[in-house]
């Protein structure tokens, strides 16, 4: 089996300090009975202007990680550096002003129902002590930026879920943060609205050069906007890397989930072999030729070929007699094609 390529350290742009850097981050929640280790030695760096996805099952530690990035949660050990400021060392009073360099978007948006849209967006500016006249100008700018200029005087209850999240994004951007943290920003939205919100986030990154960390459990979100991705499990980084590398790491879990093939029923005495390739390594017709060479007993039961992160990648499920598996794997490997018995 090939080594997951995503396990390599991430490549940083030459000379640039990463915008976000976690070193040996550990967070333990002391609970009665037993301590919960939510984060267990996380190393992570995100370059300026990148959109970095963090995925993992519920309870993997994603929210804890993002709370450490806001300074709402103090690490048990290790360091958190955001925009050159070592948050993990700052006293609470300094943390409050450091948080102005961080914007956060929540799954449940968390707008203030008692305030108008404009007042919601103005809140962080109010907190930062921006004079009223300046606030009004900035709020109008921000609402235009997210396409809600006309709804300034509405209350959150009068908006749709997608519009609320736009307000949430405008509010997060109010103090011109260097970093935008998003905790499941689209999990409560339908798929069309999800795409619009993701497009907005990407557009904002392109225009403002902001660095984005985005937590999600939907691989579709990662495929749509992330430049790089980290898979968390039990508080540890299991896989990580730029999207293009991760999808090319054939055996990796991220690659499997990013380019899924359906689960297939299996006949008696039959086995499934999974073939994965990238056209950087081998052309599609060579893969298909190698598969065809295996003989008529071998059927392509399912397959996906697509372009992701600028890379054309494919994944095939071969349905073949169980006693031909070893021979087939040998011949495919000899042809330079990655293949393994499908795990299900």
């Amino acid at each position: 089996m090939s080594e997951p390529r995503g396990a390599r350290p991430q490549i940083e742009p030459q000379g640039a300090r990463p915008q976000i850097e976690l070193r040996a981050l550990r967070k333990v929640y002391p609970t009665p009975g037993r301590d919960v280790v939510a984060l267990d030695g996380i190393d992570l760096s995100v370059p300026r202007g990148a959109i970095h996805g963090i995925v993992g099952r519920s309870g993997a530690g994603k929210s804890t990680l993002i709370r450490c990035l806001t300074g709402l949660e103090r690490p048990t050990s290790g360091s958190v550096t955001v925009d050159g400021e070592v948050l993990s060392d700052l006293p609470e009073s300094r943390l409050r002003s450091a948080r102005r360099r961080i914007g956060m978007v929540f799954q449940h948006v968390n707008l203030f129902d008692s305030r108008t849209i404009a007042a919601n967006v103005a809140y962080p500016l109010e907190v930062a002590g921006v004079p009223k006249a300046q606030r009004a100008v900035r709020v109008a700018e921000l609402l235009d930026l997210v396409g809600l200029g006309e709804r300034a005087d509405a209350y959150p209850a009068q908006l749709s879920g997608g519009q609320k999240q736009r307000v949430g994004i405008a509010r997060a951007l109010a103090t011109e943060p260097a970093v935008l943290l998003c905790d499941e920003p689209t999990s409560a939205l339908d798929s069309a609205t999800t795409r619009q919100i993701l497009a907005l986030i990407r557009d904002l990154r392109d225009r403002l050069g902001i660095t984005v960390v985005l937590i999600t459990h939907e691989m579709g979100v990662v495929r749509e906007i992330c430049d790089s991705v980290t898979l968390l499990e039990h508080g540890r980084v299991v896989e990580h890397g730029p999207l293009g590398e991760v999808v090319g790491a054939y055996g990796s879990r991220l690659a499997r989930e990013l380019i899924p093939v359906p689960d297939l029923p299996l006949g008696d005495e039959r086995s499934l072999v999974e073939v994965a390739y990238s056209t950087d390594d081998v052309a599609t017709h060579d893969v298909l030729a190698a598969v065809a060479d295996l003989g008529t007993q071998v059927e392509i039961a399912a397959g996906t070929i697509e372009t992701l992160a600028g890379r054309r990648v494919g994944r095939l499920q071969l349905d073949l007699p169980a006693d031909e598996v070893t021979a087939a794997l040998g011949r495919l490997h000899a042809a330079g094609v990655h293949a393994e018995v499908a795990t299900r």
């Binding site: 956060m104 929540f106 968390n110 203030f112 509010r171 103090t175």
Partner: peptide, 12 residues
């Protein structure tokens, strides 16, 4: 969540 949002925005 609203309190958390206010704290992230730097409110006392």
């Amino acid at each position: 969540g609203k309190v958390e949002a206010a704290r992230v925005m730097g409110s006392t």
